[in-house]
Design a protein around this nucleic acid. Sequence first.
DNA 1: GCAATCCTTACGGGAAACCGTAAAGCATTA
DNA 2: TAATGCTTTACGGTTTCCCGTAAGGATTGC
Lengths: 222, 222
Amino acid sequence: MFKKVLVAEDLDSISIAVVQVLEELKVPVIHHVKYCDEGLLKVKKAMADKEPYDLLITDLSFKSDHRKVDLNTGDELIEAINKVQPNIKKIVFSIEDKSYRIKTLFNELGINAYVSKGRNSISELRNAIKSTFNNEEKILSSDLSFNFNDKALIEIESYDISILKLLSQGYILESISKEFKDLSITPNGTSSIEKRINKLKIYFKANNNVHLIAIAKDFGLV
Amino acid sequence: MFKKVLVAEDLDSISIAVVQVLEELKVPVIHHVKYCDEGLLKVKKAMADKEPYDLLITDLSFKSDHRKVDLNTGDELIEAINKVQPNIKKIVFSIEDKSYRIKTLFNELGINAYVSKGRNSISELRNAIKSTFNNEEKILSSDLSFNFNDKALIEIESYDISILKLLSQGYILESISKEFKDLSITPNGTSSIEKRINKLKIYFKANNNVHLIAIAKDFGLV
DNA sequence: GCAATCCTTACGGGAAACCGTAAAGCATTA
DNA sequence: TAATGCTTTACGGTTTCCCGTAAGGATTGC
């Protein structure tokens, strides 16, 4: 079993259960941080001390409070850790259940397992830890089981996200076009942007822009 | 201390910690449900058996799964329980931190305490349980402490929420007007609804409807 | 009972979204 | 170089939104 595990989870009510699972599994060294920044520090320190962690279990969303932080989300934490210790095993434990988000985690951040917080997630987590230790790949908790090869959601790329972000900030088409020109993002004609929005509306079955943004918010895309 | 407590929480990772707190506090009977419907059933049964619960601790949001349910949220559960056992003490334990939402819980559903899930929420929860037992009123976990008398968000009433809901579902002005007429909600002229949306846009500093809905989503109003 | 006031609704003009079509730009291929 | 196909952009008409003004109707106060 893993020898040294780092848990990044802000909610104390949840971290208690996660730590319990690790204790059950006889993990000798279990560290727990409530802020992403702390997590990165601990990983760096452990590397420097030649006693690196062999597993990270992290949440995705962290509450913001008075404290000023560099890393706001689990995604950012993983990205930062990948730069200093890319070989660390990574399990994400989050309430998020949107396939778009989760696929990105596997494909772009190289996580080993994703466990969705739910009614039986503790045993799912336990299994995921074991499977990860046995070098299984792309482990997904059973309530999710969507098709990894489904192209549909993958096709929504950062370009679309940029449009949705600006729309949600009250930009009109022309302003988005201008912003894209300033940032050298192409295509940037109002017409092209309009067309792209149209595709998104068809894809998400949205009646109009207002509806589209409401859906995007629900999906956690913006 | 309380003699019989019901916990409604779908995430197993969290309910473990909540039950632990109750055990620490020497509560002799602790029941736990993962669905709101079950919660209501248990309360009714306990009433019929003349052994009613004296405290309910509930989450607000519950994941939906294959199971068909009548009550989808903690709000709905509390509302239903209030009809059969209005005197039961009620603590809400949720991640929600929007003042509008929380005020509504105190003012319209008569909850006794609100504890926001966070980095030290377990001790907050422990304190809230004690305070509730001592008949203190309107207990709020310390990280929230907003002003209860702040009129600002209170002024947004259910009429506004209805408009925002329909907007977020892709309704155009005329459809909203029609819907309101069907439901006998007044005012229902397109012009009045338009004016009301305008007020909301001014209040939330939104540039247009798209922006407004994005903000409303962020505030948890819809 | 009447005026003042507020709330609701109607109307109209201009802006932006919505939606289809056509032209221009650009790469690939022969 | 020319033909072809794809992407991007331009354009125009219709709908909806946006915003100001004003008419109609109910309520309040005197």
